[in-house]
């Protein structure tokens, strides 16, 4: 075991507290630091962590144009590597100047998280990077659109379109659409109480396949989000998840062996 001073431990605690305060504005409940400087053999707990995205749940309450949820889960494979996945559902209406449409669909993202954070004692906090492969199956409903007229034929500074703007309400559904993407992410997870974790991730997504409707476009894809703001999709979530421990290992043997060398 490395000789960790009390000072660096305090720094680590503060890092988590401030991370949580800044990113989530949730009351940070840091774990109580042990007062002793002697260190018991480190144990690693393995298990499944399941939870939900708080952002999508709360947005469903305050945003009339959005209904959705996301379930998150990860499983600890090794000391640092986790298998992770998100399954979600979006029902999003975008009201733009020219177009109003509703996207409905389900998505799944699966991949790995790599914990870069060296915990002390039995803490299980994470500062991690990850990769995901995402797939979404959805439909687009074109609610209304405004025809881009060009009836200003006088070509003077004061002239305008000869005909008034016309809005059509086709209410046409384009179904059977799908998209695939890859994403990289960075995030944190902190244990608030026993086995209860609060996490935050930021994600950059890049489409690898996109089945567009005939005569319209996929301007929004569930899980991927907006497709029109540059080449990348951007996403984030605040997850509240519960850890279900399955088994434990002790780091003692391996680390003692490392120390002898």
């Amino acid at each position: 075991m490395k000789n960790i001073t009390l000072k660096t431990r305090m720094k680590d605690i503060y890092l988590f507290i401030t991370s949580l305060l800044v990113l989530a504005s949730f009351p940070a409940m840091a774990q109580q630091a042990a007062d002793t400087t002697t260190v018991a053999p480190k144990t690693y707990r393995y298990g499944i962590r399941v939870g939900a995205d708080l952002y999508r749940l709360t947005r469903s309450l305050y945003d009339d144009n959005y209904k959705g949820f996301e379930i998150v889960a990860d499983y600890r494979l090794t000391k640092k590597i986790y298998v992770a996945a998100e399954i979600g559902n979006d029902n999003m209406t975008v009201d733009d100047d020219m177009i109003n449409f509703t996207t409905k669909g389900t998505y799944i993202q699966a991949g790995f998280d790599y914990n870069t954070y060296e915990n002390w004692l039995d803490m299980e906090n994470m500062i991690f990077v990850g990769v995901r492969y995402g797939f979404s199956s959805f439909s687009q409903n074109l609610n209304s659109y405004r025809v881009n007229q060009n009836s200003n034929v006088q070509n003077t500074a004061t002239s305008s379109n000869y005909f008034d703007d016309v809005v059509f309400y086709p209410n046409q559904e384009y179904g059977g659409l799908s998209a695939h993407w890859v994403e990289v992410l960075g995030g944190i997870k902190a244990e608030l109480f026993d086995n209860l974790f609060l996490g935050f991730t930021v994600r950059l997504k890049s489409l690898v396949a996109n089945k567009k409707p005939e005569g319209f476009d996929n301007l929004y894809i569930p899980g991927f989000n907006r497709t029109y703001a540059g080449n990348f999709g951007v996403g984030f979530n605040y997850s509240l998840s519960y850890f279900i421990p399955l088994y434990k290992t002790q780091a003692k043997k391996a680390e003692e062996a490392a120390a002898k060398k």
Binding site: N150, Y228, A229
Partner: peptide, 30 residues
């Protein structure tokens, strides 16, 4: 990791600037 997170945050702030909000002149319309 810090660098990665920085790139991600800076990158996403750039991406959130909507670049095609205005119909470009010369685009074929009606």
């Amino acid at each position: 990791f810090a660098l990665f997170l920085l790139v991600l945050l800076v990158g996403s702030s750039f991406l959130s600037c909507e670049k095609d909000d205005i119909c470009a002149e010369g685009t074929p319309t009606t």
